[in-house]
Design a protein around this nucleic acid. Structure first.
Lengths: 186, 186
DNA sequence: CAGTACATACAGTTATTTCTGTACAAAGTA
DNA sequence: TACTTTGTACAGAAATAACTGTATGTACTG
C-alpha cells in the first residue's frame, strides 16, 4: 500500500485501517464478477492507489509472486476493471483502476453476460430448427409432434428471454439505462 | 432424462440429442450465477422435465450420488431457480424449474447482487464516518486533511454508485424494468 | 409404538483451481 | 552485438472445492 507522505504513524495507521476494511468488503463480494478473492483484493489495493502501479509494487504490497500479479491484473484488464496506462520514461507496465464504476458494471455485462446470452441464443435457435425438421420428417406422427411441441414452447420462451436480456444489456452499453434509472436519486 | 412414451428409438434419440445440446450450452454459462457445472447441468435436466422430479430420479439421470443431488438442488432452490413442489401421496420431495426466466433473473439479482451491494454500502458508510472523525480529530493538519479528502472522494463516488445499483435492482424486483425495457421487442 | 422411507450432516477422498519458481521470449540499452 | 530488464508460459506444489458413502435425524406407516 502506498505510503502517505508527511503523516504521523498513528495517522497513517488509522487511514490504512479504514481503507483495509473497505478493500475487504469489496473484495469479498467480487465473486459476483467471477474473480478469485486474491484478485478481488488486488483490485481493492489498486482502488486506493493514487497513481498507477507496477507489477513489482503490487507483488510487494500483496506479498505474493509476480506471476500471480501478472495473471490477476490481466483478469482485471480483460474485464475492463483496470486499465493499462503508459508513462514515458518507465519500461514497466503500469495499471490503474477504472474509477467509473457505472462503466465497470456496464462493461462487465457487456463482456460476460452478453457473450453467454449470445451463445445460448445460438444453441436455442439451432435446436429450434432441428425440432422443426424432426417434426417435418415424421409429419403426421401425433405422439412425436406433441413432444416436439412441448420442447418447442420452452425453447421459444427461452429465446424470447435472451432477446430481452440482450436488449437490457444494450441499454447499459449505450448509457441509455441512466435515462431510465438516473444516477442521481430523484 | 424422462423417457418420452410412445416414440420410436430413433425419434427419442433425436429429441434427447437436441435437448442435450441446449442443456450443455445453458449449463456452460451457469458460472455467471455462481453455480458449478454439475449443478448447472442438473438445472438443464430439470428444465426439460415435464413433471416435478425426485432426488432419486435426478441421481439416476445424472449418475451421481444422492448427496450431490441434494446439495445441488438446494443451491438452485436458494437462488429460486427451482421450486419445491408438493404432491399428495408422495413422501419424496419434488422439484421443478421456475420456467419464468425473467423472474429467475430478477430473483438472482435480488438475492446475490443486492446483498453484496448492501454489505459494501454499509462498509463504505462506516468508513466515511471514520474518515470524517479522523479529520475532525486532527483538525487543521493540512497534510492529513488532504489525504482524507482523496479517500473520501472515492468513497462518496462508490456510495453513489451502489445507491444507483440498488435502485436498478429495485426496478427488477418491482417488475418496473419491463416498462423501461419491454419484454416484446418494439 | 416399532418399522420404514427419506433427506441431509459430516468426514474422507478425489478433482480442480490457485499459487509459486524457473525458464524463456521480447524489447530496451550500451 | 551482448547485456539488462521486464512480463508471461509452463510445470509442479499447495490450497480449495466438489463429490461420495456412511451415519443420523425426522416424519410418515402400519
Amino acid at each position: 500500500m502506498e505510503r502517505s507522505g508527511g503523516l504521523s504513524p498513528e495517522q497513517e495507521l488509522a487511514l490504512l485501517k479504514t481503507r483495509k476494511k473497505v478493500i475487504e468488503a469489496i473484495g469479498n463480494n467480487m465473486d459476483l464478477y467471477g474473480i478469485t478473492p486474491s484478485t478481488g483484493h488486488l483490485y481493492g489495493l489498486l482502488f486506493f492507489q493514487n497513481k498507477p502501479m507496477t507489477l513489482d509494487e503490487m507483488r510487494q504490497a500483496m506479498e505474493m509472486s509476480k506471476t500471480s500479479m501478472s495473471t490477476g491484473v490481466r483478469t482485471l484488464v480483460d474485464l475492463k476493471m483496470v486499465n493499462k496506462v503508459w508513462e514515458k520514461g518507465s519500461r514497466k507496465d503500469l495499471y490503474e483502476v477504472e474509477h467509473d464504476w457505472y462503466q465497470t458494471f456496464a462493461d462487465f455485462f457487456s463482456i460476460k453476460w452478453r457473450k453467454a446470452s449470445e451463445i445460448n441464443l445460438h444453441a436455442l435457435r439451432k435446436s429450434r430448427f432441428e425440432l422443426l425438421s424432426l417434426a417435418e420428417q415424421y409429419a403426421g406422427d401425433e405422439e412425436l409432434e406433441q413432444q416436439v411441441q412441448i420442447d418447442l414452447a420452452k425453447i421459444d420462451e427461452a429465446i424470447r428471454y435472451y432477446q430481452w436480456l440482450i436488449r437490457l444489456i444494450e441499454t447499459l452499453e449505450s448509457q441509455e439505462i441512466f435515462k431510465l434509472v438516473p444516477k442521481d436519486n430523484g
